[in-house]
């Protein structure tokens, strides 16, 4: 799937941000993902309030040295991956 830029991603039931020994993690049923840098910036914004478009714009600002198209593609890819893992739902 390709996330709709106007949709608002939020963590799916049973998924939440956690922390262990100063490492932020995305906790999910039977699995966990370590979050660093951009992945953390993205997941922190999956709160049902930010739209996909806003997340892209925010990260393009934070990572302004990177090509903005590349940042957008990476974010869309990452959101789709989390969706396939059932870690994200998208509200319209």
């Amino acid at each position: 799937m390709t996330p709709d830029p106007n949709s608002r991603p939020r963590l799916a039931p049973g998924c939440r941000l956690g922390e262990n020994n100063n490492q932020r993690v995305l906790l999910m049923p039977e699995r966990a993902l370590r979050l660093n840098g951009p992945s953390l910036e993205i997941v922190e914004r999956c709160d049902g309030k930010h739209t996909v478009g806003q997340i892209v714009a925010d990260l393009q600002k934070i990572y302004s040295k990177a090509a903005s198209e590349k940042v957008e593609q990476d974010i869309l890819g990452y959101l789709a991956l989390l969706h396939d893992q059932r870690a994200l739902d998208f509200d319209l």
């Binding site: 956690g18 262990n20 993690v25 906790l27 039977e30 966990a32």
Partner: peptide, 8 residues
Amino acid sequence: AAEAGVLQ
């Protein structure tokens, strides 16, 4: 367990 790094 949490101190040893366990998440779940």
